[in-house]
Design a protein around this nucleic acid. Structure first.
Lengths: 208, 208
DNA sequence: GTCTATATTTGGATAGAC
DNA sequence: GTCTATCCAAATATAGAC
């Protein structure tokens, strides 16, 4: 009788689990001490290792930042609310704003890592960057479905979302002073769509 | 005959001049290597000193960051375009956007230091912070002159400006892709003013 | 896979001579 | 005011034993 190869690689699974644990510790530090304050020493302490042992899992500190970037970008992709779209422009735009701004406001460190260049020497690998680019692409596609095809209007949309998120985070982290402006911002942007060369879809207009 | 006290204190003047030199060096490093990469060692090298000598001028590294913050806030105050206002709402709002966004886009490091919390452990002293708060206050006053008294609308204004600046800096530093949207943003915001409880002043309306 | 030991660099800060 | 000397701590990273 022949013994088959095991289907699961328990060693690899364990390895992956430990990598996750290390990243969790790194996020903890980033959130409490600041993204730039992450150190191998502190990570090691939290996971109960000595610093050199981390090199079994990551090639360098920047590799850890990169893995964090990939995680954050994936979380962003997972947060996209495509299954909650109703076809009503007003509702759907507000939903997109809310999702983006909520995601940003949820975690300042993650926002810094994903959307700003704050760590000297760090930039995401092409693979990690691709994840976040894909998410942005889906936002653009969705806007286009509502007739927003002018690149300038798309840029204005992202600027509005970023502005609300950025102000919320830097002036009142944890609060909702700018989050509460999402409906106003949506209304304002809707009017912009209607008065430039943009057209809301028939369904979108009908729902008003 | 009595010899009067010297009017100028040459020693103090020299001291101030050296402080400026040190801050200039710090800005150079911040702009080329990143704000977080500023170190006493590098500053000292650039000004031709040994690191300990810097303590004659500043009590600590954070004190240097604080002095940089004060400088940046003062530059912001000086950049305010109050003498270029015409009384035309459209013109003046666009001018305010352009001034703010131009100021931000000019220097990423300065933007980071003034408007974001990116250096672990740093926060501006009350004196330095007051400088930037005063500038913001003058912006608010000006908006109020145009009838924008609703705090929510004021917050929406700052969010729009911040969003354009932020997107410009993080996606296309040195470019003008979002800067070119200022007139569109102004138009959009103007309509928001007109449709909420805001009123443009008679003079502002008349000029349209 | 984890450790000890170690290298190396960097960094902020102080003491005290000149 | 500037320097040397020094401290101390933190930080990333490697070598090699277990």
């Amino acid at each position: 009788m022949v013994i088959g190869k095991p289907v699961r690689d328990r060693r690899a699974e364990r390895h992956e689990a430990t990598k996750e644990e290390i990243l969790d510790a790194a996020w903890d530090i980033a959130r409490t001490e600041g993204l730039a304050a992450v150190s191998l020493r502190d990570i090691a302490t939290r996971v109960g290792m000595r610093p050199p042992s981390l090199y079994t899992y990551f090639d360098s500190k920047l590799a850890i930042y990169d893995a964090m970037f990939a995680q954050g970008a994936q979380q962003f992709a997972d947060a996209e609310p495509w299954d909650e779209l109703t076809g009503d422009v007003r509702h759907d735009l507000a939903l997109m704003f809310r999702t983006f701004i909520g995601f940003c406001a949820e975690d300042q460190a993650r926002y810094q890592l994903l959307f700003q260049r704050t760590i000297p020497g760090f930039e995401p690998s092409p693979e990690s960057f691709a994840i976040s680019q894909a998410s942005l692409g889906r936002v653009v596609e969705q806007l286009e479905r509502y007739g927003v095809t002018d690149p300038r209007s798309i840029d204005l949309f992202t600027a509005l979302g970023t502005g609300l998120a950025s102000q919320q985070l830097s002036n009142e982290p944890g609060g909702d002073r700018w989050i509460r402006l999402i409906d106003d911002a949506t209304e304002m942007y809707l009017h912009h769509m209607e008065t430039t060369n943009q057209r809301a879809t028939a369904k979108g207009r009908a729902a008003r």
